[in-house]
Design a protein around this nucleic acid. Structure first.
Lengths: 190, 190
DNA sequence: TACAAGATGTACCTATCGGTACAAACAAGC
DNA sequence: GCTTGTTTGTACCGATAGGTACATCTTGTA
């Protein structure tokens, strides 16, 4: 009979780290094996589709995390302001204050974009949309909310680029804090 | 006797395109050969250091372009406002309105960052610094100028990520135009 | 304890990787 | 037309890529 524990899941954090560090092409099976502690046998047992299925599993996991921790709070928080604050908090935590890179952002820039196009596209579309919902609920017009959301999601991605380029984690926090302040101060009725 | 024309230079645009499209690891010598129309013989004749030297040459070329077309205008324009407008114009042109990706940004996110750390770091540092100079000359305090510059450079990089993720070039233009407006309207004496 | 099904290590496959060696083709100056 | 140095194509190298085959453990259940 099969094991009750899905070991597949346990490999995902390590897989995510490898893909984040080396990209899709750069993440060789030997690196993946070293990072997860699994041999090819196990790897191809859990992910018969090979590297592509591994990456897809990681993307799905990231997607789920953001849905639960960021998008849903943004859409459903009793106070939209609280949802927005929660977004900045969760994002700062997730990206380890800029020391960690956004895998989906990195995939978007590389030619992995085409391979995982739907996933990459949906992730950002959902993020922008969820933030726009919060802003609209906070009293901003639909058009203005979309514009602000697009800008904020963009600046977060850019902050990750800058922080990593300069090897200066502090930069990420600085940019994030300014955006949060700007966004919340721009809302009506304080 | 040697040829007077340095053919090496002529290969750089094609090289840049390959690295932009496939990243450093993904740009195989066969792809490079196909893109440039050069065989290994020529390639290693012009770039004895191999792929790494090719990428470095591309980075240097990009750096030079931005220095001439963006950083210097920002620092030296008679009217700082004009320098800023010129920055947005040149950047929009360079990135083909969001259809093209920033190679240095992509390198920053990948592990190519370590290989070309100095170049990657300087590029963004110079950009932020040059923009801050323009803002200061336009009458903004040093601290505020640095903050605004960081935010704007970040949002440009993020806009490239978003545009490519959504496969929506228009997004880049939208974000850029909003930033330009916000930046110029925030300056004293109109 | 025996069995079935999942989990794992190892050996092996072909293709391609980045890089080297080198001889032939080429161009320019005398 | 010869010489000199550059530019090229081609053959080749060891290493590693992603992936498959399969025999051997493990493990939960009866």
């Amino acid at each position: 009979m099969p094991r009750t524990i899905g070991e597949r899941k346990d490999a995902i954090p390590a897989l995510a780290e490898v893909f984040r560090t080396h990209g899709f092409e750069g993440a060789s099976l030997s690196l993946i094996g070293a990072a997860t502690g699994l041999g090819k046998g196990s790897l191809y047992n859990f992910f018969p589709g090979g590297k592509e299925e591994m990456a897809q599993a990681v993307l799905d996991h990231i997607d789920g995390w953001f849905r639960d921790e960021v998008f849903t709070p943004l859409r459903q928080a009793a106070e939209p302001q609280a949802g927005i604050r929660e977004m900045f908090r969760a994002v700062d935590q997730y990206f380890h204050s800029g020391r960690r890179v956004c895998l989906i952002g990195a995939f978007a820039l590389a030619d992995s974009r085409d391979r995982f196009a739907a996933c990459v596209k949906d992730y950002f579309a959902e993020w922008v949309d969820a933030l726009a919902v919060a802003l609209r609920r906070a009293g901003i017009s639909a058009a203005e909310a979309r514009a602000q959301s697009e800008d904020v999601v963009a600046v977060i991605q850019g902050a990750l680029v800058l922080a990593r380029a300069a090897n200066d984690e502090a930069a990420f926090g600085r940019i994030m804090r300014r955006q949060e302040r700007r966004l919340l101060q721009g809302l009506p009725k304080a």
